[in-house]
């Protein structure tokens, strides 16, 4: 759950050589990805999962909230329940489908928000330099002084349980590393010769950022953000597991793991299914971001 640190350790120590986006760059990226079988498979799995959870209301065979204690903890394949039923007799398959919606949302939303806010602040700091940089980066240091899990738990613990609070807590956790990464990438791009040259010819800041800086920094920042998705997903399911995220009777994988603990003695397979879902998603996101990183030639 502390995956953030390693990338941070490598990124903040030394600035990675920036990628210069040339006209053929994206073609090259696509070509490299299309040759990388692991990345393709992971991407495909994630795409299928995404489609399933998006269309859960159409695909789910049963109502995920409707149970009956008369048919609780039934095995795989019991009377049309392909993956059996949970501790309250609700269809497991349907719950896993709907549960994915929350788990994915909790995994991605904080990263997206952090990407926008942290990326914005980081690019600003990197581009502006001087006092602005100092201010933003010192504030970031403060949040770096908290282990990520601790910060997430402390904030959502103080705010109280709930989806919104969980997202807020996770976003706050991801903003600082996002700032650091984008600042360091931006700084190195800014110092590149041709950007310096453009500046010397009198290009305005706005134009400098739009034409020269953004295209070169967004890629690496995006790749970094994808590595955070799997962290965020595990952290979020952990918060739900602790009772700080999604509330019953809603389905969410982390929460399902917790409530199905009781089934371990009667239906061990059922009890492990949500764990398998979290694990698969997380592995795929990790490998996908690894693949993207090497395809985009980001040394981060």
């Amino acid at each position: 759950m502390s995956v953030i640190s390693s990338q941070e350790g490598r990124l903040s120590g030394r600035n990675p050589p920036p990628v210069v986006v040339s006209p053929g760059y994206w073609k090259g990226v696509v070509r490299r990805v299309s040759r990388d079988r692991v990345t393709l498979i992971c991407g495909a799995i994630l795409l299928v999962m995404l489609l399933i959870i998006l269309f859960a209301p159409l695909l789910a065979p049963f109502d995920p909230l409707q149970g009956s204690t008369g048919r609780r903890l039934k095995p795989v394949g019991w009377q049309g329940h392909l993956l059996g039923t949970d501790e309250l007799g609700r269809d497991m398959l349907s719950r896993l489908m709907y549960g994915g919606r929350y788990s994915w949302f909790l995994g991605i939303a904080p990263v997206v928000v952090a990407f926008l806010i942290g990326g914005g602040l980081g690019i600003t700091a990197g581009f502006a330099g001087g006092k602005v940089n100092m201010l933003i980066m010192r504030a970031t240091d403060v949040f770096y002084a908290f282990p990520s899990v601790l910060l997430a738990v402390a904030i959502s613990g103080a705010l109280g349980p709930g989806i919104f609070n969980a997202i807020l807590a996770l976003t706050l956790v991801f903003i600082p590393p996002m700032i650091r990464v984008s600042e360091s990438v931006t700084t190195s791009v800014r110092n590149l010769d041709y950007v310096e040259a453009a500046r010397a010819t009198g290009a305005g800041s706005r134009r400098l950022v739009r034409v020269h800086v953004l295209p070169n920094v967004l890629g690496p920042i995006f790749v970094y953000a994808t590595t955070l998705v799997s962290v965020s997903m595990i952290l979020a399911s952990g918060l739900s597991f602790l009772g700080l995220g999604v509330k019953p009777p809603e389905a969410e994988w982390g929460l399902m793991l917790n409530t199905l603990r009781t089934a371990i003695y009667t239906q061990p397979l059922l009890a492990t299914l949500p764990g398998v879902c979290i694990f698969t998603t997380s592995v795929c996101f990790n490998l996908l971001s690894d693949g993207l990183r090497s395809a985009m030639d980001v040394r981060a």
Partner: peptide, 8 residues
Amino acid sequence: PMGEVVQQ
């Protein structure tokens, strides 16, 4: 779980 049954 008891609470969830009542809820249902």
